[in-house]
């Protein structure tokens, strides 16, 4: 198992290096620069700005300088927010986005697993069609539609919940978490239904039932562990996706997370910010994929036996 993890970590290094290099040169090849604005910038001002950000150096020197700083954990100063470093901006946005992602994922797991198991117990009946139909709608409905709908119903008409902010007013974390989590809940519902259906047709389940165990015990004690393996495998990429993909929800609900900075950085040609967030998020994605692979392997007795055998 340790060799497996080490091998995967080694594989990640060139992946991240390629991401850095490609992003570095791609952002600089995009038309328009960080200091372009609607009001013309005087040439002498532009020169002063470029010198302060080392943009007056040849491209390869900028690249080497960036890698040198990066190796020391320094992602550089933001172009858009003078006086703030990219590290600082990531540091302020990440806890919020991570918290949002965690709530969204918890919501998705709770609703998704419940609906999936429920549907798998009586396949091809109304008990299956209704939750799966809802799941399909959940997958299809974009957050920029669901968010405003929830806001209108629960925030404006019923006036139960605040409609924007994060930690400012009681209950203001509920609507964004549901909005962000619902598409994942739907996906998890479908995954757990498929996983459960496969497991419920296995011989050992039939044995458990033949032994006279009540159905709920069959499900919770025997079927669930195997049935949820596809869900576990999905959780790593899902969490990484939640971190990187929260832009729309953060914008709708005025949440001070990472997503807004990430997308705005591209529009602003904030080179260091684009690079910083890309490097950071790609590292996270690699990391979460690794974790979910490890957990899936641990949950699957056949794979676990392979590792013990030294694969």
């Amino acid at each position: 198992m340790i060799r497996f993890i080490l091998w995967r970590l080694l594989q990640a290094i060139p992946v991240i290096f390629i991401v850095i290099t490609a992003t570095f040169f791609l952002v600089r090849s995009a038309p328009g620069g960080p200091f372009d604005s609607e009001k013309a910038v005087l040439p002498e001002v532009k020169r002063a700005l470029e010198a302060q950000y080392k943009l007056d150096l040849p491209l390869h020197e900028q690249y080497v300088a960036y890698l040198t700083d990066l190796s020391q954990g320094d992602l550089g100063p933001s172009f858009k927010y003078p006086g703030r470093s990219v590290n600082e901006i990531l540091g302020s946005g990440l806890p919020v986005t991570a918290e949002l992602g965690l709530y969204a994922l918890s919501f998705a797991l709770f609703i998704g697993v419940l609906a999936g198991v429920f549907a798998a117990l009586k396949p091809n009946t109304r008990q299956d069609y209704i939750p799966m139909g809802l799941a399909m709608i959940g997958i299809c409905m974009p957050s920029f539609l669901l968010g405003p709908l929830l806001v209108l119903v629960f925030g404006i008409y019923l006036d139960w919940l605040p409609i924007a902010g994060w930690g400012d007013l009681p209950g203001d974390k509920i609507l964004p978490s549901i909005t962000l989590g619902s598409a994942y809940a739907a996906y998890i519902a479908r995954l757990s239904r498929a996983g459960m259906l496969e497991i419920l047709s296995q011989d050992y389940i039939r044995t458990a039932r033949a032994k006279g165990l009540p159905e709920w015990q069959v499900v919770t004690q025997h079927a669930l562990r195997g049935g949820l393996i596809p869900v576990i495998a999905f959780l790593g990429p899902a969490f990484a996706g939640l971190l990187a993909g929260s832009f729309v929800v953060e914008t709708i609900f005025q949440i001070p997370g990472l997503g807004r900075f990430y997308v705005q950085a591209a529009f602003n040609r904030d080179y260091t910010m684009i690079l910083g967030t890309t490097v950071f998020l790609s590292t996270l994605i690699v990391f979460f994929n690794l974790i979910s692979d490890v957990i899936a392997a641990w949950l699957n007795p056949r794979l676990r036996a392979q590792f013990k055998g030294g694969a």
Partner: peptide
């Protein structure tokens, strides 16, 4: 099943952010 209980616990965490009206 321990794992299932963990899932329930995780969900309970999210459940603690309950709707309580937007107040003032």
């Amino acid at each position: 099943m321990r794992f299932f209980r963990l899932v329930i616990l995780a969900c309970a965490v999210s459940g603690t952010i309950v709707a309580c009206g937007s107040g003032e």
